[in-house]
Amino acid sequence: MDSPYRPELEAAIGAVQTAAHISRVALATAQKDAAAGSFDVVKDDLSPVTVADFAIQALLARVLHGAFPHDGFVGEESADELRQSPALLSRVLATIAECAGASLFRDADDLCAAIDSCTTASNSARTWVFDPIDGTKTFIRGEQYAINVALLEDGEQILSVVGCPLLSADATAPIFDASVDPTGAGCMLFAVRGHGAYVRPLLVETAEVQPRRLPRHADNVTSPDGLRSVTCWALLDSGVDTVHKAVAEQLGVPFPGCDLLGWVPRWAVMALGLANMTVWVYKTRDRHAKIWDHAGAMLLFEEVGGIVTDVHGKPIDLASGRKLEVNFGFVAAPKAVHHLVLRTVLDTLKVQGRDELLS
């Protein structure tokens, strides 16, 4: 891809390649030795944290800060749990040393500082956003997960690199959490705003692999007949499943279609053309999305002709902080029919008596 962001893209692709290796090593080690404590830590939101989460965030922060020292960084993890668990901290250091070299971090304090560099507010106009493992619960089960890296400039998505170690670049719909690439290659998707979205195998022996440009398939959808859904059906208690299902039924869209726990894998399958519509309405107005689940990954879908707004039709404001507090929920669909999907969402909320979610 020729673009003004070639250095950033190459650095991010290399980092995600290494991050994917870390994720596989961490998972294999934990599965082989369940007593190692790899999955013992639980965050305050009750999602499990793994060696891979910490190791990958540390890697991404160190590598990209080294290449672009004046940029800001936002990541999901804090090093607090590591400082409280010497065994876990030791395992993270050992995993990084095995996969990326022992010289990447001077010591444990250096590693923790790298992780925490992604938790403080940045005044930089350019900010990298990381989700080291999106879909941690499915990752633990050896199912679909993703590594998400985004570059924002003044709050606008500029660059996206997403690694999906278990998703085939040639997958066919529908895709579920248990749909694992039989070749073991996985895929990497990347995009630069205005320069298209691409896919390539993730785990390859040579750096010379040629990426495939993804067609702007969403441009071809001009009526609800062409809509295909991706959602997370009956697995998360944050959304209103009855609304999601009713919207699909009103539009005549088979439901659930692709069914994935992680948000980044959902955006990935939309970029690949395995789906082209998603709707998410939270159960309460005070629930908001987290930036690392969507920044950059949404750009993949936009670069194939998709439109992404919230439930009220507002653009997603990625400058609002770690939580997207300006927006409520998501409506994503091809440009020509987005307004129809949005109207159906609003009508369904009214019919179901969920007026409190419309205010």
Rank of each mutant, 00 (worst) to 15 (best):
M1A: 15
R6Q: 07
L9T: 01
A11P: 14
T18V: 15
A19N: 08
A34W: 11
A36G: 15
F39D: 12
K43I: 07
I56Q: 11
A58M: 13
L60N: 03
G66T: 14
F68G: 01
G72F: 14
F73H: 06
G75T: 00
T95M: 14
I96Q: 14
A102G: 09
D109H: 05
L111Q: 09
I115D: 04
S117D: 03
N123A: 12
S124N: 13
R126L: 05
T127H: 03
F130K: 06
I133S: 05
T136W: 09
T136C: 05
T138H: 15
R141M: 04
G142Q: 14
Q144T: 10
N148R: 00
V162K: 00
C164L: 08
L166V: 05
L167V: 05
A169S: 11
A171C: 03
T172I: 09
D177S: 06
P182C: 02
G186R: 01
G194P: 14
V199R: 07
E205Q: 06
T206R: 09
Q210Y: 15
R212N: 12
L214V: 00
L214G: 00
A218H: 06
V221R: 15
P224I: 06
R228A: 12
C232E: 05
T242I: 07
E249G: 11
L251E: 01
C258T: 13
P265C: 07
Y282R: 15
R285V: 00
H294D: 04
A297C: 03
E302S: 03
E303V: 00
G305L: 13
T309V: 01
T309K: 14
D310K: 03
G321Q: 09
L324K: 00
F330M: 15
V331G: 10
P334E: 10
L349V: 01
L349R: 01
K350T: 13
S359D: 13
